[in-house]
Simulated scan of single mutants.
Amino acid sequence: MACEIGFWVVLAAGLAARYLLGRRRLGAVLLAGVPLLDLVLLVASYFDLRAGATAGAQHGLAAVYIGFSVVFGPSIIRWADDRFAHRFAGGPPPRRPPKSGRAYMRYEWREFGKACITWTITCGLLLAIIVFVDDPDRTGHLWAWIRSMTTMLGIWVIWPIVATVSSSGGKDEPSRDGS
């Protein structure tokens, strides 16, 4: 929970430094630190398990956070940056994702691809912790996280499939940003 709060605090601090204080380099450093919070959480979880703790929700969530931050973090930061720039620095209106047509289909498949990479990173980290801790009685809860992530991926694939079916033969709608 603290790392999730830290994510948003560091994100807000990076954007504030960049746009409100005019300190672009400080803002960039702070924004680069966002995924480091998740890495700290993952390392702390690993050492907690190595010290004899039994895996709980917080240990699995640490792996999810790092997978999510690595893959979706840049687009979340870009999303927030676009809105902050528009609101506080006279930037252009933020771009919106397409709502129909082939562009919508491509967007949904790209997002699903990102979800697949998140799944790979998260499950890889969970498996690595399970192997390194080497105590099935204490790491059993981490297998539940792998099952949950797999279920999430199975549900997520519905969106690009629906986008593909709904955009069959459809034309791209013009985007609001002119591209």
Rank of each mutant, 00 (worst) to 15 (best):
T164Y: 06
L41T: 02
R18T: 00
S175E: 11
L126Q: 08
P98A: 08
S100T: 00
P94V: 00
I146L: 05
H141K: 13
R138W: 03
S75R: 15
D48F: 05
S166L: 14
R83S: 10
A57Q: 14
Y19C: 01
L36K: 12
P93V: 06
G154A: 08
R24P: 01
I121V: 15
T139Y: 07
G67I: 05
V34Q: 08
M149S: 06
F84G: 03
L20D: 07
A144Y: 09
D177N: 11
A44D: 12
S69C: 09
C3I: 09
V29A: 05
L41G: 01
L26W: 03
W145Q: 04
S69H: 14
S148H: 04
P74G: 10
P174S: 04
Q58G: 11
G169C: 02
G124A: 13
A44E: 12
S167P: 02
P74S: 09
A28D: 07
H141R: 14
L31H: 00
T118A: 09
L49D: 02
P174L: 06
A103P: 03
I161V: 15
W119Y: 15
H59D: 11
S69Y: 08
R176K: 12
P160D: 04
R96A: 07
A44P: 02
R102C: 00
A55N: 13
R95Y: 05
G178Y: 10
D81T: 06
A144L: 12
P98K: 00
S167I: 03
G90F: 08
A103C: 00
T150I: 03
G101H: 04
L37P: 02
S148G: 11
V9M: 11
R102A: 03
I129E: 08
V10A: 06
D135F: 07
T120D: 12
L127V: 15
I158L: 10
A51R: 15
A85E: 15
Y104I: 00
I146M: 07
V157Y: 04
Y19M: 02
G178I: 09
P93A: 14
L153E: 01
E111T: 10
D82S: 14
G154H: 04
G90W: 11
R83W: 15
D82K: 14
R95Q: 05
V131W: 12
R106P: 00
I146K: 01
P35E: 07
F84I: 12
R96P: 02
S148T: 08
G27K: 01
H141Y: 15
T139P: 10
V64R: 06
L21I: 00
W109M: 02
E111G: 10
V162I: 07
P97V: 03
V29T: 06
L42D: 03
